[in-house]
């Protein structure tokens, strides 16, 4: 075995790799929807919640990872379509508010349907897929999935769909006049985001052996939003770099010598400041003005 495997820092290194690899696909999905499409979808954590509970409740009931994954994907798709429908019925900022309302409602169901979800206790003893039980093998598995998703998004950036989503963001009526279907493009964007969220949540609870509702509080969404804005809205490479840097920052904060009662709010404040600063810097590109000749 090579020497570096024996270094005491390696488990933390694998942890960092795993955390970034788990977070990145959903981040890229959200960058596509919010960054590129300028769709104010503020409920992705709601989709994450139902996907995660769908996956692991099915896994607990059947013992099959495949069935669990299928259930999670189906739940994610169903709620992504609900959000897509809302986006057709509401104007942009109304969707922002309503998507938060839907998220809060889903979260309320998870917390209150205790006979199914165990409420605030969460689901403990979540097993990992049998072939990735160690830290290194799990890091390799999640990195593999992450690489596939990254390649998919790099390819997606050059497709007709990406151009259509951008065109709709820049001038919806003009895009429609050119024959672009808003319904088709937006449903595709929401579905892609839903799939990345299902993928993320398939790994997340396995990694920690626990599915806990506190992982789906609103700050989780703020983190998603922050990285999208900080990495230049709509830019896949930017989102990758921002995810890596901000994940390292997030994990690094745990070494600060503060009690958790202080560290949590400090992290919240820091992320709020970063988001505000990122919007300030990107204020001309976040929602660009229509181009004129």
């Amino acid at each position: 075995m090579p020497r570096f495997y024996n270094l005491p820092e390696m488990p933390f290194f694998f942890h960092l790799i795993t955390v970034i690899a788990i977070a990145l696909p959903a981040q890229l999905g959200y960058t596509f929807v919010f960054g590129r499409g300028k769709i104010l979808h503020f409920g992705p954590i709601g989709v994450s919640t139902v996907a995660a509970y769908g996956t692991f409740l099915t896994l607990n009931a059947t013992g099959s990872f495949l069935l669990g994954l299928c259930a999670g994907v189906l739940m994610a798709l169903a709620f992504s379509l609900l959000f897509a429908w809302l986006s057709f019925r509401l104007d942009s900022d109304g969707l922002g508010i309503m998507s938060i309302a839907v998220y809060l409602a889903l979260f309320a169901v998870v917390l209150n349907w205790t006979s199914l979800t165990r409420g605030a206790l969460g689901l403990p003893r979540i097993p990992r897929v049998p072939f990735a039980d160690s830290a290194m093998s799990f890091a390799l598995l999640t990195t593999g999935a992450c690489v596939l998703w990254t390649l998919f998004f790099l390819w997606l950036d050059r497709t007709k769909l990406a151009r259509q989503v951008s065109a709709l963001a820049e001038g919806e009526w003009h895009a429609k006049a050119l024959g672009i279907s808003r319904a088709g493009a937006h449903i595709a964007a929401f579905v892609i985001l839903g799939l990345t969220l299902a993928s993320d949540n398939f790994f997340y609870a396995q990694y920690y052996h626990l599915l806990h509702p506190s992982d789906y509080y609103f700050p989780a969404f703020v983190s998603l939003l922050m990285i999208t804005v900080a990495g230049k809205p709509g830019s896949t490479p930017g989102a990758i770099i921002a995810t890596i840097l901000l994940s390292l920052l997030k994990e690094g904060l745990r070494f600060l010598p503060f009690p958790s009662a202080v560290l949590g709010p400090l992290r919240l404040m820091l992320f709020g400041i970063i988001l505000l600063a990122a919007v300030w810097i990107q204020r001309d590109t976040l929602f660009p003005k229509k181009r004129t000749i």
């Binding site: 949590g264 919240l268 929602f287």
Partner: peptide
């Protein structure tokens, strides 16, 4: 610049205020 930007910035500001209240 764009009426949608405050939707994002007020989320950031709400996080800062939340943290300040908690602290």
């Amino acid at each position: 610049r764009d009426a949608r930007i405050p939707l994002v910035t007020t989320i950031a500001w709400s996080m800062i205020l939340d943290a300040a209240i908690l602290l």
